[in-house]
Amino acid sequence: MLAKVGKTVTFIYVTIILLFILAPLFMILLVSFNPTNMFQFPPDTFSFQNYTQLFQDERILSSIGLSVFIGLVSTIIASFIGLFAAVGLVRGKLPGKNLLESLFLGPLIVPLVTTGIGFLLIFVPLGLAGSPTAIILAHSVVISPYIIRILIASMRQFDPVQEEAAIVHGASPLYAFATIVFPQLLPALLSGAILSFLVSLDEYTVTVFLTQAETVTLPIQIYQLVSVDINPVVTALASVMVILAFVLITILEKRLQIHKYL
């Protein structure tokens, strides 16, 4: 009897939490089929108009292009930094490793506005403010902790005796790294890179300090379209992003159990 009550209570609160997590996402999917008023619930019309217009909207397309470009380049930079940091921290001979680990994870702790203002302060004198270069460099720092954390965990699991086996049998350190260590870090690096890419695609706070008219990234564009010049096409865009993120995360979790590294 008591157990049954407990089960019912659990069921109710878990349902409420789940609803809380998913409600805004479902809402977006729902209203994306309503081209007239995206804030209307329940929707009063049904059509695919938002989706067809999505692929004709110049501003949105160029924002997507810019954000994907920035995301890719900054993820590549962050991947190198993450890889170097992880092998250096786990296996290198660096002084004050605890402090250095805080340095690498620091961008998660320091408020994004602080870093954002900092980037603005250093990029303005260089004439880089508002340029994709500035945003790319800034993103590479902000997203790197996600890669570093996964790679540190992965590198700690790696048995160094494999490197010795490689070297004794004729491999130079670089060759051993490229053929033995790197391939085994690759799954972790890829999942970290995908997560970082998603973070870069969604980065708003730091970017807003560096953006200018010609560098409107995707999240800034979305903000424009939901708050300033309201346009229902954004619902289709948001729906596509929701579904894409779900698919990517599902793959990552099924393949690599990424929750263990976060």
């Binding site: 048995d159 005796v161 494999q162 010795e164 086996a165 490689a166 033995i180």
Partner: peptide
């Protein structure tokens, strides 16, 4: 070299 833990790749 042959290692105790095999050290295969």
């Amino acid at each position: 070299m042959v290692f105790q833990q095999y050290a295969l790749f």
